[in-house]
Amino acid sequence: MKRRIPIYVFIIGAMVVASVLYGTGILGYLDDVVRYASLPFVRFSAAVGFEVADSTNQESVGALKTKVKDLEDRLAATSVDYVKLRGLEEENRLLRETAKFLSTSGYDYVGARVIGRKMDSHTATILIDRGSKDGLEKGMAVIAGDGIMVGKIISLSERVSTVMLITDERSRIAVSPAGAHKLFGLIQGAGNGVAQLTLVPQSEKLDRNDIVVTAGTEEKIPANLALALVDSVDSRPTEAFKSATILPLVSPDTLNMVVVLRASALSPQ
């Protein structure tokens, strides 16, 4: 009587064959075909998930009132700076239009939808529906809203990319104060939706409600992209550097559509 081969043997054998096919690139090609066919359904289901999350996100009335009061107070405190900032923004806008900033800087952009996310006490990553076929590369800046940087690409395939948000434990971004063109610190993700501004020299001025922007020292991340708001400053005269807790300007829960800044030299024809 023939002895039946256990199913485990088939499964392990199939794993070995799949590993060989993956190593030779054949499976990668099939992956791309299946992703291409399934992406429209994935986008639809991501939209459904986002709408369900949005509709179930309810805070108590008391908590909302407290939040509104706190935001109003902070808004009042920043009103003078806001006027100055608006003036500078208008000047910047005019200069950019005159100098045709985007075309001469070599950056163009591609929109992407968030199709998955992973938020826990250590990681803060999202999956977007653009990949290397759209001219994306590792290290490119990802922005949301009015040019606020939310993270950068850390891995990608032909159709999808993983974006690490600034609150991820592994995230490190060089920053400078808004309006200044100098490197003065580092934003380090701390997990749990929180990040810290560290390595700020004691001689640098740093106050609550200051806005920090990208320093432009990383290859594919332009300078002056707004990142975060300083929440509380920890400064001790006995230490060489001061640090601060920062609030990201965009909440990950609201991320549905993002924009990836890419070098125009690599954009597809």
Binding site: V42, G49, V52, T56, N57, G116
Partner: peptide
């Protein structure tokens, strides 16, 4: 199976606790 996989990979990642 494809629907369940789609739910696990996308929709579920957006849902708040306890959903």
């Amino acid at each position: 199976g494809l629907l369940v996989g789609l739910y696990e990979a996308t929709i579920r990642t957006f849902l708040p606790i306890p959903l």
